[in-house]
Design a protein around this nucleic acid. Structure first.
Lengths: 190, 190
DNA sequence: ACTATAACGGAGGGATGCCTCCGGTACAAC
DNA sequence: GTTGTACCGGAGGCATCCCTCCGTTATAGT
């Protein structure tokens, strides 16, 4: 069920050639993922460079703008989410949907970026968002067709609900899961 | 049902005596409410002063720290929420709860502050939060006792859920209400 | 009207973040 | 080992924000 010809999201940032440069590139990406997830898309770039153990110049050489860096993190996670959606397609309708949503919740940087940008109209986000919607909508519609999800809810409603919930503060992971499940119960058809 | 001896939340910020000073004080509060609701508790104090049409010095004279200003906005809204809870007590259990939550959702600055600070342990927030929990918990427990709300959910779960949902981005107010109702359906007992 | 003083407001110093630029470094190819 | 060059990193200019300080202004009481 996994199609190999899914068009890759266009990321115009190139991984450098030299070994040391590649190490720095990857360290930056990792530090950025962490920072964006923790402090949101406004995280300090100088902090990210420091965290990655490279100079601020190196950050800017690889990612000329904040958006470039954000894209590199964000697009990577979105792409994995698309793959996860294809994999989940083998499960029963409702399980497929919740499994995928759980995966979505796991992508900290993405859910935070989504949450912060769902209503803004940045072009670069739009493409990624559309890819994700294209991946998740079939799962949701299948659950609806099977009579397991309410029909008066849209996929957009669902995704905003989940991203809002997971971005909020909770005492611990248990509470977060509990609350998420409660909310999902509201989506389930009676 | 409205008790008149509810202890007022202690706000150590005093409204000034002189007429011009009171005008500035109120303008600052209004600008702050707006800014905190829009940009979160990190909103620029200089922006707030500008928005209120006063100098930055005036802001600091009235509210020596960011927390003082935040408290003045926050405590005011919390106090109104406590009153709203007492008023809602006359309605049937489930209606009382949802009516109060709707009111909660309306307090933009508060819900945002709550959302941003639910897990931090700032002392000043704690007192206000406790007051709000004291006001809302009875409504929730009454709904549980009446068999209208699930018993495996806590008031804390509920409040974090609602504050997470309302802080997220939605296309319009309709969608926000729709999603909130879906999530509340998950809280309703079967 | 006059005056004491409460209140004003913005200049300015310190901190932090953004981003550019360029002298220096170290990799890779020979 | 030598060398060309891809790559490094941080100094520094600009902007923004925080917060204090103090010369100036407007109000309230007489």
């Amino acid at each position: 069920m996994v199609s190999e010809n899914r068009p890759a999201l266009q990321v115009d940032v190139r991984r450098p050639q030299r070994a040391d440069a590649r190490r720095n590139f990857d360290a930056l990406l990792a530090a950025a993922r962490d920072a964006f997830a923790t402090k949101g898309v406004g995280a300090s770039l100088e902090d990210i460079a420091r965290q990655a153990g490279v100079g601020i110049g190196t950050l800017y050489r690889n990612f000329p703008t904040r958006q470039d860096l954000l894209n590199a993190v964000y697009f990577g996670e979105i792409e994995e989410l698309c793959i996860a959606a294809e994999e989940a397609a083998d499960l029963p309708p409702w399980d497929a949907l919740t499994t995928w949503l759980q995966r979505f919740v796991g992508y900290a940087a993405t859910k935070r970026a989504i949450w912060e940008s769902l209503n803004r109209e940045a072009d670069s986000f739009k493409a990624a968002r559309e890819a994700m919607y294209a991946a998740g909508t079939p799962l949701f519609e299948r659950a609806q067709a099977a009579g397991e999800a309410r029909k008066d809810v849209s996929f957009d409603d669902l995704l905003r609900m989940v991203s809002g919930l997971t971005a909020a503060g909770f005492v611990d992971q248990d509470q977060r899961d509990r609350v998420l499940n409660i909310a999902l119960d509201g989506v389930r058809a009676r």
